[in-house]
Design a protein around this nucleic acid. Sequence first.
DNA 1: AAGAATCATTCAGAGTGAGAATGATTCTGA
DNA 2: TCAGAATCATTCTCACTCTGAATGATTCTT
Lengths: 152, 152
Amino acid sequence: MVSAMKDVKGAPLADTAAFRLGRLGALAADRFTARIAAHGVKPKHVALLAALAAGGAESQQDLAGVLRVAPSLVVGLADRLEQLGAVRRERDPVDRRRQVLSLTEAGHTLLAQCTADAHAVDAELLDGLSGKAKETLRATLAEIADRHGLSI
Amino acid sequence: MVSAMKDVKGAPLADTAAFRLGRLGALAADRFTARIAAHGVKPKHVALLAALAAGGAESQQDLAGVLRVAPSLVVGLADRLEQLGAVRRERDPVDRRRQVLSLTEAGHTLLAQCTADAHAVDAELLDGLSGKAKETLRATLAEIADRHGLSI
DNA sequence: AAGAATCATTCAGAGTGAGAATGATTCTGA
DNA sequence: TCAGAATCATTCTCACTCTGAATGATTCTT
């Protein structure tokens, strides 16, 4: 029964985008983490800043949704960013349960620095790829993120 | 000083491949993790199986290098896989300090199942992209991984 | 006005991984 | 040949991150 003969090597695990994204994502995250440590923040802090800059999410509850983390986690992130003077935290006068976060001038600066760090990681991570390949990659990642509701 | 006027929005953080890889990597990893849980393993177990299948790493020390984790972590991974009957663990007769791991028939089967899971995650993660875009993405990720010594 | 729902916060606990200490084995050099 | 250094696997402790369950304050509903 020749038809029962199967490939010795089917498409390897490493050929899947899922697995590679996991590995490369961890690599990228590690490098980004190392760079932004100089500013006293971690990726989740930066994500929160970016979410604020993007608009559409002000309350900690909303931010938890955008970042896809538990609301209780946002408390600590906001604590830290407030301590750094990067965000303001004010009770919503209309609904005093809500904490409304907003970027300060220092927050914008911090976000810009971290964005520069991300670009630096890009440069070393994508080094060797053609400019076109880089563009295509960014566009494809953006589309995938978009399709899965990852605004940030 | 018109030249001092800076963009209100420079290239956003989300435009970097680094940041998106981190986010999408986590997303992909979560979904992959959920699927393979049915087989009683986690991504690191699968990575170990894949590393064995790829060849070139037999000892736990070598595997730790390939997986980029501490050797102490490999112990638990190998314990679990051995318990599942997916790997054999034998002392190297030439150097009895080394544990030589090898895939059993069940190990090959398990890896194949997990690879199928990864393909399933690919399907839903990349849904909507053109076939060409998927191919380009996989190739680009492969190249990046390669350039950074990520054999697995 | 009372009870349900919502938001932020605190707290306890699970999960993950690194690094130091240990023991067994092998290597090195005199 | 032998003593000390080096290597490998293992165990154990610790730090870190995150979630989910209380809790209290406030708002919504009827």
